[in-house]
């Protein structure tokens, strides 16, 4: 079980190599996240930073934390984020015009102050201090250790947090939900309507566009068996925009000759 546990406070050669390869990549990705223009690129770089963090956790014997970091943050949170961003579309990039005067210098000052504070605190907590207790905490196995802490000492905090999250989720749903005045036609209703309508023809879907073998594009209505164009075969948008071609020029010449 503790084949992964190494002497506490020691950094083995593989771990150091891993660190010196991944750490610069993580820092570059984090900086890139701030400076790229497209929101999706930003989100991707953030996902990469999360994955590298997870690898660091695993390398430092926090297996469970590392894997859960990937499942929860990369898999669920970032995926939801991407879901929203995708609705924005591929071409949009954020405008970099300043809306509030003097915001940039203020933000830079605050950022430098905060990072100075964080770095000094983390350095004081870590540099020159022996890390202790990892072996004891992982003695039964990493997962069992976390489970014991979570379900004995911290069970109250754990349950309060989960109640908070559920309240937030239900609250968001209540706020976003409104009772519709009349029921929205869903896929099911449309499907029923197609079969119960006046003509069974609609059940099979609309006819495809184009005159076969001569002009097969979406902007030409298909021809019905009697040779007249079928208006339902092309999109109403194209018709309104005036992008519709007549299907007359694409009719087979041969047919006329035969008639003569």
């Amino acid at each position: 079980m503790d084949s992964f546990a190494i002497e506490v406070g020691q950094t083995l050669a593989p771990e150091a190599t891993l660190f010196w390869i991944l750490a610069p990549l993580a820092v570059i990705a984090a900086l890139g996240m701030l400076f790229v223009k497209k929101a999706v690129h930003s989100a991707l770089l953030l996902a990469w930073v999360m994955v590298t963090l997870a690898i660091f956790y695993i390398a430092q014997d926090a297996l469970f934390l590392g894997i859960v970091q990937i499942i929860v943050y990369t898999g669920a949170v970032m995926m939801l984020f991407l879901f929203i961003l995708m609705l924005v579309g591929v071409d949009s990039s954020d405008s970099l015009v300043e809306n509030i005067r003097g915001q940039r210098p203020l933000a830079i000052t605050a950022a430098i102050g905060l990072s100075g504070l964080l770095v000094s605190l983390i350095a004081r907590a870590n540099l020159g201090v022996e890390a202790v207790g990892l072996r004891g905490a992982n003695s039964e196995g990493n997962v069992q250790g976390i489970a014991r802490e979570l379900f004995t000492n911290y069970v109250w905090a754990f349950e309060v947090v989960s109640a908070l999250l559920i309240t937030a989720a239900v609250g968001a749903m209540v706020l976003a939900h409104s009772n519709p005045v009349k029921s929205r036609t869903a896929q099911r209703d449309k499907s029923i309507a197609r079969f119960r309508g006046d003509s069974i023809a609609a059940a099979a879907g609309l006819p495809g566009s184009g005159v076969y073998a001569l002009h097969n594009a979406v902007d030409v209505p298909a021809l019905l068996p009697d040779g007249s164009p079928a208006p339902s075969s092309i999109s109403a948008t194209l018709e309104a925009r005036g992008d519709m071609l007549s299907s007359k020029p694409f009719e087979l010449e041969v047919k006329k000759e035969e008639e003569d």
Binding site: F4, A54, L63, I67, V68, I71, G75, G141, N142, V143
Partner: peptide, 10 residues
């Protein structure tokens, strides 16, 4: 690894 199945999920 002790969290093998979770790893596959990740």
């Amino acid at each position: 690894i002790p969290v093998g199945v979770l790893y596959i999920f990740a």
